[in-house]
């Protein structure tokens, strides 16, 4: 369209987010991809690609990561499209492009769909179809199973929905091997078990937000004490789960020691949340657990990566 006007249909209730917006900025579209979440996805997928047995051409490995990142971003855009009504009720999410009215819901939907299809096709054509199938399932799981169904219907939303965030290392692994095996599933399990205490810690100090939006997060439905109990159970379960790559004979002693220290610290922070139940101390403990949980996940995967690369160095130099 060359002139500076556009015909738009104005219908009652057509858009619940203010007046017509003539498209957001490039930064708004980038924000739809949830770049902060994407960084964790890319990192865990990167570890999956590097530690997987066999090899992949570095260029194809980079493409696999690009596709996984775009696929994750696409599911973020679909999530923002569907959740715009509740996002505008929460402080943390009210300034997102769709609820803020900078991007139209339909634009976010088509942007997310286009990137979903594009990333899956690109991964399939350029890398392999097993990884592409897993990526498609991940996007479907996050956008449909979690966002459209579980999030608004059950306090177990992030327990089951956490699978979506746990898939990236499996997709990265499958990009190299073309399959899924026990070790890649152990990486899946670490993130899967990490997700509930991570989000419940956040929900403990953002309960009013979730209450206002009517999202049945654990503290809203079962109360903070029950949430603390469940956080502790998951945190204790994280210890053996974190060590599972070692128990499966995939990781070495360095990983065992570091994994044990990191997961024990996780359980300790969860214990503090369990014990500190009143006032500012309770909120501080929840915030500390939330902050540490991010450090924990990055560190566990970083240790796995470092150990793997270090074990390959002598071979590389000898070769």
């Amino acid at each position: 369209m060359s002139d500076s006007s556009i015909d738009i249909e104005v219908c009652a209730g057509g858009s619940s987010f203010g007046n017509f917006a003539a498209g957001g900025s490039v930064a708004d579209y980038f924000a739809l991809l949830k770049p902060r979440v994407m960084s964790l996805v890319v990192f865990t997928a990167f570890v999956g690609v590097v530690v997987a047995p066999g090899g992949i051409h570095p260029w194809l490995g980079a493409i696999a990561l690009l596709c996984i990142a775009v696929g994750a971003g696409a599911s973020g855009a679909l999530n923002m499209w569907y959740d715009a009504d509740i996002d505008r009720l929460m402080r943390r999410t009210a300034s997102r492009p769709v609820p803020a009215g900078r991007v139209q819901p339909g634009e976010a939907l088509s942007f997310g769909m286009m990137l979903s299809v594009g990333s899956v096709l690109m991964l399939g054509v350029l890398v392999n179809w097993a990884a592409a199938g897993l990526l498609a399932f991940t996007i479907f799981f996050y956008a449909v199973i979690y966002t459209m169904w579980l999030k608004r219907s059950t306090p177990q939303n992030i327990v089951i929905g956490g699978a979506a965030g746990a898939f990236p290392p499996v997709v990265g692994w499958a990009s190299v091997t073309g399959s899924v095996d026990l070790v890649s599933l152990s990486l899946f399990l670490i993130i899967f078990m990490w997700t509930p205490p991570h989000f419940w810690a956040l929900a403990l100090f953002r309960t009013s937000d979730y209450q206002r939006a009517g999202i049945p997060m654990m503290p809203v439905v079962a109360g903070p004490d029950e949430t603390r109990r469940q956080i502790l159970i998951y945190a204790l379960a994280i210890v053996p789960v974190t060590l599972s790559p070692f128990l499966l004979g995939f990781a070495g002693w360095f990983y065992l020691v570091a994994g044990l220290a990191l997961s024990t610290a996780f359980a300790w922070f969860a214990w503090r949340v369990y014990v500190d139940r009143e006032g500012g101390v309770a909120e501080r403990s929840a915030r500390k657990l939330f902050g540490y949980s991010i450090v924990f996940l990055f560190s566990v995967f970083a240790v796995l990566l470092i150990e793997h690369v270090a074990s390959r160095l002598p071979v590389a130099f000898a070769g």
Partner: peptide, 14 residues
């Protein structure tokens, strides 16, 4: 149907 006039900012964003 209404006709939307693009502002300078909107054109720059486009």
């Amino acid at each position: 149907m209404t006709r939307h006039q693009w502002t300078k900012e909107e054109l720059a964003a486009r």
